[in-house]
């Protein structure tokens, strides 16, 4: 049987998880010093656990800022700007292609069916990757929110 006292780290761990080492259990059964130390840690953990949670003496509605709608509308405004810019760029590209079709038609003249298929495959690949990314982000967000909601 070990005569050396348990160190603080062992005492803290054993108070949390229980005594796992047989030699330490044997030592504890005869050592008053270690028993007292371990009991003190167990009492401390229990007291922390059972301590009352302080209350926020404020109404929930008082914690929601009046400008909540403004915060969100700023966010929506930003995403609307981005969509507008993207849509405008696509429309501009199509318009330029249609207007200048005669001068740029030579670009598409030499394209073979095989290269069209390869191009479409590459495009599909990129699209699938993008969709997978969007879907996994969506799942991640949903699972995070689900975890939050089930915890309430």
């Amino acid at each position: 049987m070990s005569t050396a006292h348990l160190n603080e780290e062992q005492l803290q761990d054993y108070a949390l998880t229980g005594i796992t080492h047989p030699a330490d259990r044997e030592h504890l059964s005869v050592c008053n010093h270690c028993q007292v130390q371990l009991r003190a840690y167990q009492m401390l953990y229990n007291q922390i656990q059972e301590a009352e949670t302080p209350l926020v003496d404020l109404e929930t509605k008082d914690l929601i800022p009046d400008q909540l709608t403004n915060f969100n509308s700023d966010d929506r405004k930003e995403s609307r700007y981005l969509s507008g810019i993207f849509f405008g760029a696509v429309v501009l590209l199509i318009a330029v292609t249609l207007v200048c079709w005669n001068s740029i038609s030579w670009v598409f003249a030499g394209i073979t069916p095989l290269s069209i298929i390869i191009g479409l495959l590459l495009l599909s690949g990129v699209l699938i990757m993008q969709l997978t990314e969007v879907y996994s982000t969506y799942r991640k967000k949903l699972s995070a929110l689900y975890m939050e909601l089930t915890a309430t």
């Binding site: 209350l55 926020v56 929930t60 509605k61 929601i64 909540l68 909601l149 309430t152």
Partner: peptide
């Protein structure tokens, strides 16, 4: 807007104890 307020209320209810613990400690 009502949806936002409802979500905000849920968020506060879910986190207020943790926030209170941190602020008080």
């Amino acid at each position: 807007m009502d949806g936002d307020r409802h979500a905000a209320t849920l968020l506060i209810r879910h986190t207020e104890k943790l926030v209170a613990q941190i602020v008080f400690k």
